[in-house]
């Protein structure tokens, strides 16, 4: 099962490191990363594999949200299906 993780906020040192740490701790595998900075706003989109996670989805989501607060960015994780269903016929 795959999910899309998005990080939006002001750029600073350690965003990817911090988020990746949480993912590694939960045994989430990163499949793809894309990242841009638009008008100082850092936007990162990760495609991750959550089929082998060692926590439930809601715990993972909480941990990421907390990490986001520490880093001053907003972090969301959503099942990939929502994007596929909205944007693919």
């Amino acid at each position: 099962m795959r999910a899309v993780l998005t990080v939006i906020g002001r750029d600073r040192v350690g965003i990817i490191a911090g988020v990746s740490r949480v993912l590694a701790d939960c045994n989430v595998n990163i499949l793809d990363i894309s990242q841009t900075i638009m008008q100082d706003i850092f936007t990162m989109i990760m495609l991750v594999d959550i089929s082998k996670i060692n926590a439930n989805f809601s715990e993972l989501s909480d941990k990421l949200e907390k990490k986001g607060e520490e880093l001053g960015v907003s972090v969301r994780i959503q099942h990939e299906d929502i994007f596929n269903s909205m944007h693919r016929v």
């Binding site: 899309v4 998005t6 939006i8 989109i45 495609l47 969301r76 994007f83 596929n84 944007h87």
Partner: peptide, 12 residues
């Protein structure tokens, strides 16, 4: 793969 612009559109 879903394009970043599509991901951002949904989130927006």
């Amino acid at each position: 793969m879903i394009r970043p612009s599509e991901v951002m559109e949904t989130i927006k």
